[in-house]
Amino acid sequence: METPAILAFGFYFLVIVVGCFMAVGCASLVRALVGLVATLLGVAGMYLLLNAPFMAFMQILIYVGAICVLIFFALMLARADADGDEADPAPAPRTFKGILAAMLPGALLAPILMLHPTASKLIPAEVPLAELGRRLMEDYVLPFELISVVLLISMAGAVLLVWERRDK
């Protein structure tokens, strides 16, 4: 990679790592959510570096714009402030298990990735937006329709779950 690309990659990587630590470690769930947003923005930057600007904008639109706002509404139900449910430090075995869970895939997959790197191009492929839309409408029309059905069902299910009868 060129030097500016490496610098940009390092910056986004730093944003992702700091965001991950905030999302996992912060006692206040609001700060954890801010960490999640930082991570999502870092991943969006990596999509830009991968020459996939459409994915970057979808990442910001769907994750930051929709999912994080949804989680923020749910935060109002949890006791999310600094002395809420997550405030007292987690019991030591639990923290240890968490670190173990993080290390296990790293210890298993990182050596494989380093020792047997796949041949990769230096310049990412370029996909025109029209090509994405054409494939979505021609080759992959069934998954496209199925995902809209899944979204509709999950939306209806969410409404049904939290429905309160007025006559009760």
């Binding site: 869970a101 993080a102 895939p105």
Partner: peptide
């Protein structure tokens, strides 16, 4: 991989 590890750690912790 960093994202996967952080997610697993958070899920347990």
């Amino acid at each position: 991989l960093v994202l996967l590890g952080a997610g697993l750690a958070g899920l347990v912790k």
